[in-house]
Design a protein around this nucleic acid. Structure first.
Lengths: 214, 214
DNA sequence: CTCCTTGGAGAGTGCCGCTCACCAACACGG
DNA sequence: CCGTGTTGGTGAGCGGCACTCTCCAAGGAG
């Protein structure tokens, strides 16, 4: 398969594919000679993943490169690889440590993890970027005077744990570590729009049920 | 309160506040004379909401303006107002109707709503932008060969309904329609990062529990 | 009276995800 | 073996967006 074929089968323009190659999102093809390179099904698969991350998941190109780098790092075990890939994903702003809402949010998130019994998450908390973006989001809610507290949030955490369990069950039906990590990244990113849409549909549905369509 | 005070109390630069005023995200202050305008607590509250939408929720400025327009539209009843605001929120790309994955996704989403018994959502389906972005996201998952089907997704839908019920219960503790709609919008947008973070933390936690830290 | 601040508005900035234009080296059909 | 078209590679350009800068004349504060 050459570049033009890759483009046809993926629906991505050759210019964009070249850009992804340049940015290191897509590994180079097998160079046949100075003007020809061969791509295989693996490239097509990776290209579709890249597109999904960027277009549906809105992941910045630089972040996608980093995440995919971890996915491909065969020197790591599965858990570390998964962790590294997930850690590379968030691109939220740094919390403003001077803001009292941030400090309060941090405390409350700590209590939440305790309530949920998420020991690994608690140990990793000071370093984890995921933890950090949780703090930022909670701080934003608090600034809007939403009485957010750990007890209120614990059920959501439990629900997300339920979601994660289903995903890992499903991942286990797949063969290689790389495939599993790839799948975990795809779920982390692509289930987001799905959950968001279901969430909003549920809001509308429940609102219509409670109050009718006035 | 003048512009500079509004800036100090919100932590948003005067230049940015002026920009929001120009873009219609913030209603103008009470004009005292040609060079002075007075802002009140309502402006501060709105400004915080705008910031949360844009910075944490990553909602584009143009979209935020539209959403807030619906929140403020007192000619509408609560359900319609909520629906209008939520409909204005998504900013996903249009589905490519020529793509067979999109057609398959549409069918599958229809079956999902049937399984969940979400009648209002089914009636609104052809028009709803939220429904549309669900189709886009599901199509992306299908293209990656994830065997997504309605039965697999139904539990997620049920979980999101549970989340929505909690939110509406909480909303009911608040007074005016406008406040309730504002709160619904804030949840729709700000719970997203919270859920995302909890989801990823749960993934890491469960992975560590199952496989240890190799 | 003097200096500072105000609201308003246009133009500029920086980033980002492409997209275009151009290149010499080659592939391939006839 | 020739002519046309395609290849990988690269620099520059584009359009959108969220600000941010700069300037202005009109007031306000001490």
């Amino acid at each position: 398969m050459r570049l033009a074929d890759l483009s046809k089968r993926s629906g991505v323009s050759t210019a964009t594919i070249k850009y992804y190659l340049r940015e290191g999102l897509l590994p180079p093809g097998r160079q046949v000679n100075a003007t020809t390179a061969e791509y295989d099904e693996g490239h097509l698969r990776r290209l579709r993943l890249v597109r999904a991350l960027i277009q549906v998941g809105k992941v910045p190109v630089a972040t996608a490169r980093e995440v995919l780098g971890h996915v491909d790092d065969e020197s790591l075990g599965r858990t570390i690889r998964l962790g590294a890939a997930l850690w590379a994903l968030p691109q939220d702003a740094e919390p403003d440590e001077a803001d009292p809402a941030v400090a309060a949010a941090r405390t409350e998130v700590g209590r939440l993890l305790e309530l949920l019994g998420w020991e690994t998450a608690r140990e990793m908390a000071p370093l984890s970027p995921v933890h950090r973006s949780l703090v930022v989001a909670v701080a934003a809610l608090r600034r809007l005077d939403y009485p957010w507290d750990a007890e209120l949030m614990a059920p959501y955490g439990a629900l997300m744990m339920e979601v994660a369990r289903r995903e890992l069950d499903f991942m286990e039906t797949h063969a290689s570590d790389a495939e599993q990590v790839e799948m975990a990244v795809a779920s982390a990113v692509l289930f987001q729009p799905v959950l968001r849409a279901l969430h909003r549909l549920a809001q509308e549905e429940e609102s219509a049920r409670r109050y009718g369509i006035e």
